[in-house]
Design a protein around this nucleic acid. Structure first.
Lengths: 212, 212
DNA sequence: ACCTGAACACCGTTCAAGT
DNA sequence: ACCTGAACACCGTTCAAGT
């Protein structure tokens, strides 16, 4: 993640040695396990430490408090997600609009679907903390990836690319989240996915400046 | 709210007497105040009780646990929101599509904007609890209100009204939430609102069955 | 230098004792 | 019948004592 997180949420020390990096990894894994097995309200520092096989004191060497642990976990998850979407966007540079939108929606939708248990758990863990910085950094990365892609579309150009791009991202990310939070029954869910693609394309057709 | 909440989340007793109803109201008000003044992580039963001028024991007569209090608070908020949107929809029965969409987006957007501090605080409070039931009940009410409205549009009819309607709601609600969570700078925010309306209308134009 | 875990302050929840 | 608040179990966090 590009933006530096608020100081009070960053890890206490960077893992300089292999052992430290390993410990950090173990703590993260333990956190996800406890999150999935017991839920957010039973995620305690004691339980995570126990599962990770370290003492609470050790955990507090890596994270100044529980929120910092959850913050770092979300940071990692968003980084993986961002990389996936950036790659999907780069893969469609120069492609027609329809393929771009299909690729973007697919990449995001599929990422959420594949590990919907983790996704949902992280959504829940994220709200307890001040994640505005995290969300903003993620949004900025996505903005860059998709506007770079849209600028290469052979079949359209836009007067206000920033506005169009921000709209697309807000609509796609917002809709996907809404669908997964509701947990729609299956025929509806995949129907909605196609409608979302249609909607974005109709919008782009309406606001584009026709290319000679 | 129509659906009965999970038993473990419902208030312990219904307020049968005027005094009880007043106490309940005082507790709710105190909760919102603490939420806004101190934040979700400092919202403790002791603090709420103190602010409300009752003892913790009394609070536990009305709510079996803290989650039930937050659940009830969200329930009330969603009810107010639902009533507003239902009225907005009823007011546009028989109107052209463009007016319907404008009214729907306005009603939801404005409700979120007016008290964005409370909205945001409640978003945060909601995630700690099992609010699936609440969300589903709200979504069902909205489904009814907007599909009833859309069915009366003089300038369009739809082959699959359920799919179209579910799509519209997911897109509008999801997008608005996304915009408010990001906190976009002002020219972008109101620009995005107009784009959202455009987008919905272009979508509806594309999927409608032309009326004779 | 790094790890440990008892100790502390505070939280959610209960229930014996009051009125 | 209803309210109170000390008491209990548990949580986040610290830091003296260990290695």
């Amino acid at each position: 993640m590009a933006a530096t997180p608020p100081r009070h949420l960053s890890p206490r020390k960077r893992p300089r040695q292999a052992r430290s990096a390993a410990t950090l990894e173990v703590i993260f894994e333990a956190t996800v396990q406890v999150l999935l097995a017991e839920g957010i309200h039973r995620l305690t520092t004691t339980r995570v430490a126990e599962r990770a096989g370290v003492s609470v004191g050790t955990m507090y060497q890596y994270f100044p408090h529980k929120q910092a642990l959850l913050y770092a976990l979300n940071e990692r998850y968003l980084d993986v997600l961002a990389v996936r979407i950036e790659k999907a966007c780069e893969g469609e540079h120069g492609a027609p609009l329809a393929r771009m939108i299909e690729a973007l929606v697919s990449a995001y939708w599929d990422a959420k679907t594949e590990r919907s248990d983790v996704t949902r758990a992280l959504y829940r863990s994220a709200v307890e903390l001040d994640n505005a910085t995290l969300i903003e950094a993620f949004a900025a990365r996505m903005d860059r990836a998709t506007s770079a892609m849209l600028a290469t579309a052979p079949d359209a150009a836009f007067d206000d690319l920033t506005l169009v791009n921000t709209t697309l991202l807000a609509v796609i990310f917002g809709t996907v989240r809404n669908v997964f939070e509701r947990g729609l029954p299956e025929p509806l869910e995949s129907g909605l996915r196609r409608q979302l693609v249609t909607m974005c394309l109709e919008y782009l057709k309406a606001v584009r400046r026709p290319v000679a």
